[in-house]
Computed example of a mutant assay.
Amino acid sequence: MTAVFNQIMQEIKNTETIIIHRHVRPDPDAYGSQLGLKQYLKLKFPNKNVYAVGEAEPSLDFIGTFDDINDEQYENALVIVCDTANSPRISDARYASGNKLVKIDHHPAVDQYGDINYVNDHASSTSEIIFDFIVHFNDLSIIDASVARVLYLGIVGDTGRFLFNNTTAHTMQVASQLLEFPFNHNEELNRMGEKDPKLLPFQGYVLQHFDLNDKGFCKVKITKDVLEQFDIASNEASLFVNTIADIKGLKIWVFAVDEETEIRCRIRSKGIVINDVASDFGGGGHPNASGVSVKDWEHFEILAETLNNKL
Score class of each variant (00 low, 15 high):
Thr168Met: 03
Tyr40Glu: 00
Ala3Val: 12
Arg268Glu: 12
Pro58Ser: 11
Gly32Ala: 11
Phe133Val: 06
Ser290Glu: 10
Ile80Thr: 07
Tyr118Asp: 04
Thr306Gln: 15
Val226Asn: 11
Lys248Phe: 09
Arg161Asp: 14
Lys248Cys: 10
Leu153Ser: 02
Val156Glu: 01
Met172Thr: 00
Tyr40Leu: 07
Glu128Val: 01
Thr168Cys: 01
Asn213Thr: 09
Tyr95Ile: 04
Leu303Pro: 12
Leu41Arg: 03
Asn213Asp: 15
Phe230Thr: 13
Thr306Tyr: 11
Arg266Cys: 08
Phe181Ser: 01
Leu37His: 05
Gly216Phe: 04
Val277Trp: 12
Glu236Asn: 02
Lys100Met: 11
Phe281Lys: 00
Leu163Glu: 15
Lys221Ile: 07
Pro108Trp: 11
Gly64Ile: 07
Gln208Val: 10
Ile302Gly: 06
Ile130Leu: 06
Leu239Pro: 07
Phe164Gly: 01
Lys42Glu: 13
Asp196Gly: 05
Asn165Thr: 14
Pro287Thr: 02
Pro58Ala: 06
Thr17Asn: 05
Glu228Lys: 13
Gly216Arg: 04
Ala145Thr: 01
Ala169Ile: 05
Ala304Lys: 05
Asn184Arg: 00
His23Trp: 05
Asp258Gln: 08
Phe137Met: 05
Ala145Asn: 08
Ile142Lys: 04
Ala85Cys: 05
Ala145Gly: 06
Arg89Asp: 03
Ser59Cys: 08
Val206Thr: 06
Val119Thr: 11
Ser125Thr: 06
Asp115Cys: 09
Ser141Asp: 11
Asp196Pro: 03
Lys270Ala: 15
Gly98Met: 06
Gln229Ser: 14
Asp61Met: 15
Gln7Pro: 06
Ser293Cys: 09
Val206Gln: 03
Phe255Ala: 09
Ala85Ile: 02
Leu60Cys: 10
Gly271Trp: 12
Val273Tyr: 15
His299Thr: 15
Ser234Phe: 14
Gln73Pro: 01
Ala289Tyr: 06
Lys270Val: 15
Lys310Asp: 14
Glu259Ile: 12
Lys103Asp: 02
Asp211Pro: 09
Gln39Arg: 14
Thr17Asp: 03
Tyr95Leu: 10
Trp297Cys: 13
Ile232Trp: 09
Lys270Glu: 15
